[in-house]
Amino acid sequence: MRRITQISETLYLLCRNRAALAGLIILGIYTFVALFPWLLAPNDPLKRDLALRYQPGFWAGKEFARFPLGTDYLGRCVLSRIIWGTRTSLLVGVIAVSISTALGMFLGLFSGYFGGWVDIVLMRIVDILFAFPSILLAIAIMAALGPGLEKAMIAIGIVYTPQMARVVRSVTLVIREMEYIEAERALGASHARILLYHILPNVLAPAVVYATLSVAGAILDAAALGFLGLGAMPPAPEWGAMLSGSHKALTSGAWWAVTFPGLAIVFAVLGLNLLGDGMRDLLDPRLRM
């Protein structure tokens, strides 16, 4: 009962925070698109017709209504590809971040709670990973794993792990020193119980906020890998790969082939950032009172 009121209260507060609400709505739309692409896509995203390369969209007049956002360098419908690509891109973002969250939480909790040499070793490894630019690291990992969408997810997951581990560790360090954890030790609670039952719930809130924000970064990185031809394998629709395939289009005046996939990325990232920031405010108990 209590839990339900808590969730409804959270939703209520979320709705009062305008920015977070906007983020939520944007992501809602994206999720719907990702779930039901066949309902929305006007054309087959894979069907190519070289005769119809770089066709403009609705702005050019009624006769072009068949491809509302025009066609790309192989004559494929840009809108349909964006719609089908939503699923891939969101999935890459969410799965990659799930990997990094799981790994990062484990490392961060362990490192922060036990401290000592475990902490020193783990954090030095994290520092080393940090020293690489994220996309470079992802490329290096991809080089080892080989190309492919699943591998891109793993690579991006690994790239985002150190940051998550840092966030979780720093929160753990604070919580570990709280008197209620000391009280717990005085009662004779085991390390496992303290970690899972007392520290984890406190770490969860900042971790969720951070994960939401990293999904945005992961989508961008996935797009970048796609752009470099390391992510989704052609002809599968994916935002980054669409940019990569069409970047030459810019010089030939077919701006739509790159602009619209780019905008799809921009709005997804914006929505996630708005939601992440809103949740940060929301999960701060001092602001909830």
Binding site: A186, L187, N202
Partner: peptide
Amino acid sequence: RRRMQIVFQDPFASLNPRKT
């Protein structure tokens, strides 16, 4: 442990805010 216990100074920091 159950035979020797402790009460802390700060009643705000010594209770987990996420538990009833």
